[in-house]
Computed example of a mutant assay.
Amino acid sequence: MTTHLAAGDWRARAEAHAERADALTAGHRARAAARERHPIEDFLFTYYSYSPGLLRRWHPGAGVELGGAAATPRAEWRWYAPGDEPGSLVVDRAAMTAEKGAMLALVERMLRRTASRPGAFGCFGLHEWAMVYRQGEHRHPVPLRLGQAATDGVVEAHELRCTHIDAFRFFTPEATPRNRFAPTRESQPELEQPGCLHAGMDVYKWAVKLGPLAPGELLLDAFELARDIRYLDMQASPYDMEPWGGEPVRIETAEGKAEYVRRQRGFAERANGLRRELLDAAFPAGSAGSAEPARSTPIAAG
């Protein structure tokens, strides 16, 4: 089923989207011009390597016909095709699937399987601690809040339960064997679970990969979620983030653990809501590539 948007309606949405994207990236763009860096907020632009300009580009999502769009520069954009109404454009799902079918299947698999599983909430953000365990040099040029010896002691007093390959791959050699799991890229679809902060941040990555199949509003929602998660990620880390607005979540204490899990559960709920919205938008029932079966394999990580 195709939804038609009149020219005035979709242009207003595209303009509002660009204004929202500009507001979300204003700080990063100003710091980049001044050659300055915020270790929390600028992380998303290096970790994912997506530019502010990409965030600015609005797409309607699959199954939406844009009236009068054929007379605009959008007609030259990749994966757009003429719609049923003269002068209109729609996202060309068939062409995108033909070129990016394997990638789209992976995105659907990751979104659907992650959303279908129960969350694990016993990791307490110790992945960042494992990345500095017994190391004199660290990934971020920020002092450790407790110092090296006490930081190492926190790691040794807990079980590491990281399920995410893109966190686990940065563990120090000494921390790697301490983890309950050994995540790999191949096992990622089986290990990903909604309680993981990195999996929540990755909703933004999957939205980007969906390109024009994902409505622009959902892309910015996913970016905001990733930014908010990154704050908790670094607040609960061993680094002293207070100079950058990151009041510590002291996961080495019972109170800090409770605060971390409370916020972690909230992020899991937000992330799953976005996963379902992206699936509904990009892979509606009956569309090509919407046959990924639901999986509910529990992850025994806490």
Rank of each mutant, 00 (worst) to 15 (best):
Y260K: 02
D9L: 10
P194R: 04
A6P: 09
G147I: 10
P82N: 13
A268P: 09
V91N: 00
A16S: 11
T253E: 08
R29G: 07
P248Y: 05
V142C: 13
L126C: 08
C162A: 14
G195R: 00
L89E: 07
V203T: 02
L160D: 04
E137G: 11
A294N: 06
A226L: 08
R250W: 08
L44M: 08
Y50L: 07
H4V: 15
E269D: 10
S116V: 06
E65T: 13
A294H: 05
T172N: 12
S290Q: 06
P194W: 08
R275M: 05
N272S: 08
Y239V: 06
S116L: 06
E186N: 14
W79G: 01
H198T: 04
A16H: 09
H38R: 04
A271F: 04
I251H: 07
E269L: 13
V107C: 11
V91R: 00
I251M: 09
L146I: 08
L146V: 12
G211E: 06
A150L: 14
L232K: 02
A157L: 09
A294G: 02
S187W: 07
E19R: 09
T163C: 15
P293D: 01
P248M: 03
L218K: 00
D42K: 12
L144H: 07
E85D: 12
N272P: 06
V249L: 01
G211R: 08
E41K: 02
A34H: 05
L44W: 02
H17K: 06
Y239K: 04
H164P: 03
L144Q: 05
W79H: 11
A150I: 11
S88N: 12
S49L: 09
F43L: 05
W79C: 02
E15Q: 11
L160R: 04
Q148E: 09
A175C: 13
P60R: 02
E269R: 04
T172E: 11
E292L: 00
D152H: 05
G27Q: 08
G67Y: 04
W206Y: 13
S116C: 12
Q135R: 15
M201E: 04
G273I: 01
T97C: 05
A130Q: 05
I40T: 01
M234L: 15
S49H: 11
M241P: 03
E85S: 13
W79M: 07
L89T: 02
V91F: 07
A6M: 12
E76M: 10
D166Y: 10
E85N: 13
E277G: 06
A26V: 14
R20P: 02
Q235L: 13
A167L: 13
D9K: 09
G68K: 10
P52H: 00
G245R: 01
I299Q: 04
L225D: 00
A130I: 12
E41Q: 11
H198V: 12
R74C: 09
A150P: 12
C196L: 03
Q193F: 03
A207K: 06
P189Q: 06
L278R: 00
E277P: 08
A157T: 12
Y260C: 05
L278W: 01
